[in-house]
Amino acid sequence: MTAKADACECPPTEEVGSYPEIDAFCDTLPSYDGALIPVMHKAQEEYGWLSRDVLLYISRKLGVPASKVYGVATFYSLFNLEPKGKFKINVCLGTACYVRGAENVLAAFEQELGIKNGEMTGDGLFNLGSIRCVGACGLAPVVMVNDRVFGNVKPEDAKSIIDEYLGEGGEAV
């Protein structure tokens, strides 16, 4: 069992919030050995992203130095250290999609949204990113918006895909 947080003699200098969902998940674990990544998965599932506050909380909860928590969080591409938009547009840049022109599709989305790959629009509606191979190579090039897959996407389709969600976002906001 890893040492608990209070084994460290440095006084915590920063107040952190409370996260009962993380506590509840940790209670189900038989041991904190190797628990860091599963806990971060859980936290991201609950809160959408991993804020500094959440990372510090996890660090103290598991008794793992904050530097290590940060090191692990930044190592893996699935962990978001910044909030994400409501609609996550991900252009697949796997090889099959690349060979079939995914780069031009990404460029079209960048132009339509006025943001770069990895950024979020000012209104918090859209996030543009790239992913690697969702395994739907038969439909390349592929774009995912949240969990929905669009296949055989051409650059000129970018606008209509965005418009479809713009309608939804407008109603919901």
Partner: peptide, 19 residues
């Protein structure tokens, strides 16, 4: 959690150990 290098066996084991 999305790291290509984790396909390497010793990396994978480090990842399972939470690092």
């Amino acid at each position: 959690a999305g790291a290509f290098v984790c396909g390497e066996e010793t990396s994978l084991m480090n990842s399972v150990q939470g690092g």
